[in-house]
């Protein structure tokens, strides 16, 4: 059985995710599969997956570098196929283990993100499905404008060991908007 930071008994299971002026949703348990290193892009393409430009996303494939890809749709099928496939096929990027995955949405989304991310994420400057590799909540992170279950917002991938830290940083940043 897998235990993620916010699962019962997980490293951050005493942390409450904020859900008022901003909503933080933990997507860490969702499947994802990352490939990195030479051969990754070609193998993925041979599986019939799209190959977007760097720092763009297409049909659930995030491309973070020339040979650095993360698949967030039908990831488990792909993982099984990858394990069975002969080289060259790139290397496992362990993205389901290295990263926490959280979604931010809510009334003060823009206000809070302006406090925790140095990139201009306004709708005019940062379009739907755009990706930035930058800092979010004082951590190196990947931020992606992403509507999840009908909630417009952003997905953020960051160091899984910093899950509690990130959740607390977001809560602190949101505090000024919930008071008064």
């Amino acid at each position: 059985m897998k235990t993620f930071p916010l699962s019962p008994g997980g490293a951050a299971d005493n942390v409450t995710l904020i859900d008022d002026v901003i909503t933080l949703t933990d997507l860490t348990p969702l499947p994802r599969f990352g490939l990195k290193g030479r051969g990754s892009a070609a193998w993925l393409q041979a599986q019939g997956r799209p190959l977007p430009q760097i720092n763009q996303i297409a049909s659930g494939v995030l491309r973070l570098g020339r040979e650095d890809l993360v698949v967030v749709e039908a990831a488990d099928d792909l993982r099984a196929a990858w394990h069975a496939a002969p080289a060259p096929k790139g290397y496992n990027a362990w993205r389901e283990e290295t990263w926490a995955w959280m979604h931010l949405s809510g009334q003060h989304l823009g206000d809070v993100l302006a406090k925790i991310c140095p990139v201009d994420l306004s709708p005019a400057a940062f379009k739907d499905n755009q990706i930035a590799q930058t800092r979010v909540g004082y951590l190196e992170a990947i931020i992606w404008r992403h509507t999840f279950e009908g909630r417009e917002g952003f997905s953020v991938f960051f160091d899984i060991a910093a899950t509690a830290f990130f959740a607390n940083a977001v809560t602190t940043a949101a505090r000024e908007f919930s008071e008064g």
Binding site: P5, G10, D13, N14, D159, A161, A162, A164
Partner: peptide
Amino acid sequence: ERRTALHQ
């Protein structure tokens, strides 16, 4: 602040 998986 970083926590190992066994923090709790």
